[in-house]
């Protein structure tokens, strides 16, 4: 009966993942490997960026909006924020579908999201990346790693650490069923600062991590060390988020850019 419970939990979490996230690894890989009828529009310089803004991301940039005359770095930073806000919204809905999450103390739910969403976001971002770039605008565009690196500092420092993480993470060859459980494990984490009902969350975490471990053994029988490798990735993600939060604070201090109120809430007093 315990095994049956585990299978049910794995299935519920995987279904919630497929339902709530607009992009997933299977979709992203189909596009990145050229198996779609229309390949993504490649953004590799200022000219192609402008073209993409006029067509793919017109809504985000607001062609007639306040950002029209701002420099490319600021416009790209703004686009990153829009995507982040959307993903945080999706992650919130996903978390609510994880069995047990909604019955947690509301303040604890907030704490789990505050500390978990960026780790989850960067883990999932890897699905949309290859060594040369990153899918954007729901997979209709592809922005090159070189172009992102060529932006002026500090904006050029934003994505390179995520690419470096993604290349190592993608080498583990997880599929969406693995990622769904991994993202759930990131969110249901008992050692986030300020949690009230730690015991309740630790019980949830334990069952999710156990399901993840069994699922990996069944889904990747040739890689017996995949589970410990993934546990290490949890620590790497925490470090990646800490560095990202510092960079965003620096940008906020030195650049004339606004930060979305939802993201401000998440970053405020984070680490």
């Amino acid at each position: 009966p315990q095994l049956a419970d585990q299978k049910t939990l794995a299935k519920q979490i995987y279904e919630a993942y497929l339902k709530n996230f607009n992009m997933n690894k299977a979709k992203a890989r189909t596009i990145l490997t050229g198996k779609t009828s229309t390949p993504p529009f490649v953004i590799h310089d200022m000219e192609t960026l402008q073209l993409a803004e006029q067509t793919l991301v017109a809504k985000m940039v607001g062609s007639a909006g306040a950002l029209k005359d701002r420099e490319a770095e600021v416009r790209i930073f703004h686009c990153c924020q829009c995507t982040s806000v959307e993903t945080v919204t999706e992650l919130t809905e996903f978390a609510k579908s994880v069995p047990g999450f909604s019955s947690l103390d509301l303040n604890d739910q907030v704490t789990l999201l505050k500390y978990g969403v960026y780790e989850a976001l960067f883990a999932m971002l890897a699905s949309s990346m290859n060594k040369d770039g990153l899918l954007v605008a729901y997979g209709s565009g592809f922005i090159t790693r070189e172009f992102l690196k060529s932006l002026r500092r500090p904006f050029s420092d934003m994505m390179e650490p995520k690419f470096q993480f993604a290349m190592k993470f993608n080498a583990l060859e997880l599929d969406d069923s693995d990622l769904a459980l991994f993202v759930a494990a990131i969110i249901c984490c008992g050692d986030r600062p300020g949690l009230v009902n730690v015991a309740h969350i630790e019980r949830m975490q334990e069952s999710i991590v156990q399901v993840l471990q069994h699922h990996l053994l069944a889904n990747h029988p040739d890689d017996t060390f995949l589970f410990p490798k993934l546990l290490q990735k949890l620590a790497d993600l925490r470090q990646l988020v800490t560095e990202h939060a510092q960079l965003v604070q620096e940008i906020k201090k030195t650049e004339d850019t606004s930060l979305h109120p939802l993201l401000q809430e998440i970053y405020r007093d984070m680490y």
């Binding site: 703004h78 924020q81 829009c82 919130t92 809905e93 509301l106 907030v110 809430e265 998440i266």
Partner: peptide, 20 residues
């Protein structure tokens, strides 16, 4: 609670538009 107003909103509403 005030410090995380939008996160609270997102958790309590099924979907809420989060515009810049």
């Amino acid at each position: 609670k005030e410090k995380h107003k939008i996160l609270h909103q997102l958790l309590q509403n099924s979907t809420s538009p989060v515009d810049l």
